[in-house]
Design a protein around this nucleic acid. Sequence first.
DNA 1: TTGTAGGCGTTATCAG
DNA 2: CTGATAACGCCTACAA
Lengths: 338, 338
Amino acid sequence: MHIPSSRITINDIARLSGVSKKTISRVINQSPLVSEETRSKVEAIIAETGFVPNAQARALARGRNSLIALVHDGSDRGILEAVESGMLRGMEGSEFSLVLRPVEGDPVARLRSFIDQHRPTGIVLLPPLSESEELTLLCDETETRCVRLGRVRGEHGLACDDRTAMSELVAWLIRLGHTRIGLVSGPETSLTAQQRELGYLDAMADHDLDRGPALIAAGENSFESGMEAGRLLLEVSPRPTAIVACNDEMAAGVIQAAQRSGLMVPDAISVVGFDDTPLAARIWPALTSMHIPWAAMAQEAVSRIRGQAMAADDAPALKADLVIRNSVLPLENQSGAT
Amino acid sequence: MHIPSSRITINDIARLSGVSKKTISRVINQSPLVSEETRSKVEAIIAETGFVPNAQARALARGRNSLIALVHDGSDRGILEAVESGMLRGMEGSEFSLVLRPVEGDPVARLRSFIDQHRPTGIVLLPPLSESEELTLLCDETETRCVRLGRVRGEHGLACDDRTAMSELVAWLIRLGHTRIGLVSGPETSLTAQQRELGYLDAMADHDLDRGPALIAAGENSFESGMEAGRLLLEVSPRPTAIVACNDEMAAGVIQAAQRSGLMVPDAISVVGFDDTPLAARIWPALTSMHIPWAAMAQEAVSRIRGQAMAADDAPALKADLVIRNSVLPLENQSGAT
DNA sequence: TTGTAGGCGTTATCAG
DNA sequence: CTGATAACGCCTACAA
């Protein structure tokens, strides 16, 4: 016997309260088909005994486990912390638990066997996996609820407008007098990164500024790729007076590259990030960044999976928001050199 | 019917291969009591059909779920990333999945209901929760395997020697000529933090240096508390020439405080951290830090829970290791001011 | 080496 | 409103 007999089950409760298992089950599941009297009697006994329904048995009977999985490919670690804590907040006080599921290699096959094995109630997909239609199809097939973060179109999507947000960010730099603005782009396979790049191009075009390829360096969302891209952009002549990176990790890399080569930020060059991850506040100079409400989106995603999607009015605004810190100076206050 | 009948079960495999369920079960569980012939035939069919055993049914029958939980109280977010990825590496290719379980409030009650509900195979406890004997007892009671990270004594512990590591770190600063060395300590309720503080005191005493309370500021393992403690230490007169923080988050806070007040790191003051989290490499100047192999420990913890603890020889060394970056200068190369 | 019967704790069906 | 009875998919005893 694996399970200590001390562990109490629905049968014990049934016996103690003199009703059938099924009635206990109804009480547990808030079924309206129970008399007030019976319900309160049973509830008292449950409280008294500290009975907790066994999630495995339940999962087996229902064909669904009380798990919600966070599925990502590890390509953008910066936003993970916010997403995790948002999801956890959304599950607080519920029966649900959070499972971490990185998938590398063939995402469809990996995810399929994960779902077959654990039958989670739902999964939250992060970019760029959230951009795959295949994965959504897989969830439909397996009756797994699915929310795609950072991907607006489609019924399963939840995102804010990256393109507009980036364009506003760049427009803000332009208002500060900057005209030569470099971009560190994200992986070209990521639609989210593409949207951000388009936002940059929008703003530059709106103000008739040079948006030639020389001012754009390709990154991979990682700190290291940001450093590398930063080095490239710093050698462009004439040098950009501001650089915007498609996420905070890369922005931190740009700052590192700049300071190492003796260009102080923001005195010699301004740098801005995107996402507003915890890293932004911890580096020096503290990074000005466009806040993307990943935590709020993740929390809302969990609500949807739990079937408690808020009314449109109550839903959190899910809007991007500029957070000004210390990594940007108006052009007129910048010096040309160290 | 919740489960699409298309989903294949052990019964389908049994029928297809012309043997009984039990034999399939034996194959799945690597039982030696199966003939080579039968085994390979069954395995072929399993591969062909893509059959994945249902974890819920299995969990119900065995009384254990194929989950391993990471349990922490959120007080030291810096090491979470390393621990998560180490645990995931340890579970790669296995049937196990990682559940994230932050507990706030009454840890014993919270953990108990979590265990009752999900019956995880094991849990990994992070400091300071790993220091609680109560939680270990709870695991014993519920037959849940448990590994306590950062806590040496006892059969369930897995840690490296924080005290010695810190003392070596401080001794290294002393060899660089520093004599006035400040400390940002961790929460006094955390034994791990206490060990680190003791290591600092050891080294200072060994070299007959001032280790009075004026040079020690209390932190709470958070970035903000590090900034606050940093501000305090910078006002001590004469000012310390180096500050060591009990974790990287706080060290980043100290750097922020120093640079904001115009004291450049490391030119005016040296700063070192502890843990060597990803943050250390991302800030500027890059943080010199004592590497604590959290990822390796977490991976080993998972191995233990899976019952595959390596022989002592094969086990990863689990030793702390100094990682030198750019936040420290020998005293003679430091200038007294900006 | 393999198979049969029964149980794990819960939910669904359908009759009272 | 309530309760027998039969799943859910797998595993352990015990036989064969």
